[in-house]
Design a protein around this nucleic acid. Structure first.
Length: 584
RNA sequence: GCCAAAAUAGCUCAGGGGUAGAGCAACGCUCUCGUAAAGCGUAGGUCGUGGGUUCAAUUCCCACUUUUGGCUCCA
């Protein structure tokens, strides 16, 4: 970010934060009993949390918005004052949340308040605009009412939060509202319905995904590519069961530390079984099936492993947060000597995969040893160093989350930015110092001594379901040709040309192109419209001329049109686009 | 899980204490069509589930289920 951009953001932040005070003022006017929590500026806007005598309705939002516009019109000044702790506590004695905030301020910290005329006064660090006339009455919009726990803690009171978006002027606001509309259009749940890709069924189990034929085609494309690349990169595939006896989960520690994330037990013949929330114990079972020499290592075992986890009911969301999903999992089992090269390789591989799917803007997050952890410090240090070196060698931008690692090992997470500028965490590469001990994994080293191997978990796409959701939103349903579930729609201009269209269809299918013909009695215009709406990359329109010349008319979903293309040329062109993973 | 809102035809949605409505999709018929919607017709619903109030509930009330927006952004 340039310093100019930073300044602009700071200015917007000041504006939004001031706007939050204006909103609080309007709410106070409406409900004098209101208790105020916090009201920061956030990305694209601001919010304020209130404890109110009654529930807010959407009509209230309109009234509050009106109230805010009035305050803005009145050019109310913002004035800063510095108070002693005692004065501040006295001033906010009727505001329990503010009192808590004041009491939590560290000793010696300056306590300041901002007065907005006699309308509203808030404990606040600032800064603010000089007066409310600096705010734009056309530049904001209250968006939604939401519940939010005081300080994000579910044991504390639930407050009412009003979210708003705000910009310097009406034009920027309009642009942002249009952006939100565009997001709605790209929503994977909406596109999933429009293109008949997948469904979820409350009566059959929430958070469990059904892949329809079109969605399954995309999934198969993803998986085929994934398997091929894994074999090319020295991995082996494994398949493991979906359930395991409690012994397995006791040994792994999941029943001690992860039980609330697991589906409850099934009992068969008086024995407890659990659906797997992770694949790792199964892969370790394969490893422990025999004795291993250092000469065999490293093992790279991959599995598209479907796992089941309990996600809190309120957090389920389309494909992005589900209860049953398929991890593109793998475990690297290696000697200490091999660790660095394995990490570097898997990071490189990960970047290759993400880029293959069109994600170019990738950043890394390195999470280091937390306070509570297992495993020897020197192993943590070596592992963390290898992760850091791998990131730096790739020249990736990265942030360090000190102490943010899991208790069993440090990790790298990769985040991609999609075409709409949103970040998604996809890949994760994670050391495990817990399971090798628990399962007593060993290899015989060159000196004949049994030693502990390093175990690294990794998922490149994360989960197939979630990745699919991200892909849909990234492309807004207009996939590159290789991922499109229908790459070509053959459209005869009239039923007279159905037989030639079928010939074309057959030729394309022989060329391994995903093709469908439209033999409905719709008019050609309607057929084109239907194909456009499904975002099918190529429409091959055929009629008399094409039939006579063994040709097709190519209409790309962008609207481009090329007439009289010989059929074999059209096939080559489409095959080429598929091979290059390009847009049509 | 918690707060709020929602659930009506396959989809998008309207309606409202007294026989349930539209558009699109589906199906049938007519038209045989040249680059983003031909015309006519037919069928389609225990109004999410269970309970209550009422002469009468899809509508009002309660519970449940599911979905949606939130629950990290620090005065």
């Amino acid at each position: 970010m340039t310093s100019k951009e930073k300044k602009k953001l700071e200015k917007l932040g000041k504006l939004r934060h001031s706007m939050a005070h204006v909103m609080a003022g309007a709410v106070l006017k409406m409900m004098p009993e209101a208790k105020f929590a916090i009201g920061p500026s956030i990305e694209n806007g601001f919010y304020y949390d209130f404890d109110l005598p009654r529930k807010l309705t959407n009509e209230d939002l309109d009234k509050i918005e009106e109230g805010m516009k009035e305050i803005i019109k009145e050019s109310v000044p913002f004035e800063r004052e510095v108070l002693s702790r005692a004065e501040a506590l006295e001033m906010f004695r009727d505001q329990p949340y503010k009192v808590e905030l004041i009491n939590d301020l560290p000793e010696g910290e300056e306590i300041s308040i901002f007065k907005m005329g006699d309308i509203f006064c808030d404990l606040c660090r600032g800064p603010h605009v000089e007066d409310t006339s600096r705010l734009n009455a056309q530049g904001f919009k209250l968006l939604s009412i939401a519940g939010a726990y005081w300080r994000g803690d579910e044991k504390r009171p639930m407050l009412q939060r009003i979210y708003a978006t705000a910009f310097g002027d009406g034009k920027a606001l309009k642009a942002h509202l249009e952006f939100l509309e565009e997001m709605e259009k790209r929503d994977h749940r909406r596109v999933g319905k429009e293109q008949d890709l997948f469904s979820l069924h409350e009566e059959a189990g929430p958070g469990l995904v059904y892949w329809h034929p079109k969605g399954a085609r995309i999934r198969v494309t993803i998986e085929d590519f994934w398997r091929k690349q894994h074999y090319k990169n020295g991995y082996e595939m494994v398949f493991t069961p979906h359930v395991g006896k409690s012994w397995l989960w006791e040994t792994s520690g999941h029943l001690d530390f992860y039980k609330e994330g697991m589906y409850p037990k099934m009992v068969m013949d008086n024995v407890d079984y659990y659906a797997k929330p992770m694949n790792c114990p199964f892969h370790i079972m394969i490893y422990n099936n025999g004795k291993h020499s250092y000469r065999e290592l490293p093992f790279r075992w991959a599995e598209l492993g479907t796992v089941y986890r309990y996600e809190r009911s309120g957090t389920l969301h389309g494909l992005l947060r589900v209860r049953g999903f398929t991890q593109d999992d793998a475990h690297l089992i290696c000697t200490p000597d091999q660790m660095q090269s394995e990490i570097s390789e898997v990071l490189r591989f990960s970047l290759f995969m993400l880029r293959s799917f069109g994600f170019k803007d990738i950043s890394a997050y390195l999470s280091t040893m937390p306070e509570k952890s297992v495993g020897e410090k020197n192993r943590w240090d070596a592992a963390t160093d290898s992760l850091r070196k791998a990131i730096e060698d790739e020249g990736l931008e990265y942030k360090v989350d000190e102490g943010g690692g899991a208790f069993y090992g440090p990790k790298i997470d990769l985040k991609v930015k999609d075409t709409m500028g949103r970040e998604w965490q996809l890949s994760t590469i994670q050391f495990d110092f817990n399971l090798p001990d628990r399962f007593d994994m060993t290899f015989v080293d060159s000196d004949g001594v049994e030693k502990r191997p390093y175990v690294i978990h990794r998922a490149l796409l994360g989960s197939i379901e979630r990745f699919f959701g991200v892909l849909i939103e990234n492309y807004g349903g207009a996939f590159p040709v290789w991922l499109s579930p229908v790459q070509v729609k053959v459209i005869p201009v009239g039923n007279k040309f159905d037989s030639y269209a079928k010939e074309v269809e057959k030729a394309l299918r022989q060329a391994e192109i995903l093709v469908e013909g439209d033999y409905s009695d719709d008019r050609m215009n309607a057929k084109i419209r239907n194909a456009q709406n499904k975002k099918i990359p190529y429409m091959l329109v055929v009629g008399e001329k094409e039939m006579n010349d063994k040709a097709v008319s190519i209409r790309v979903r962008t609207g481009e049109q090329t007439n009289a293309v010989p059929l074999d040329e059209a096939i080559t062109l489409i095959q080429d686009k598929i091979a290059r993973k390009e847009m049509p």
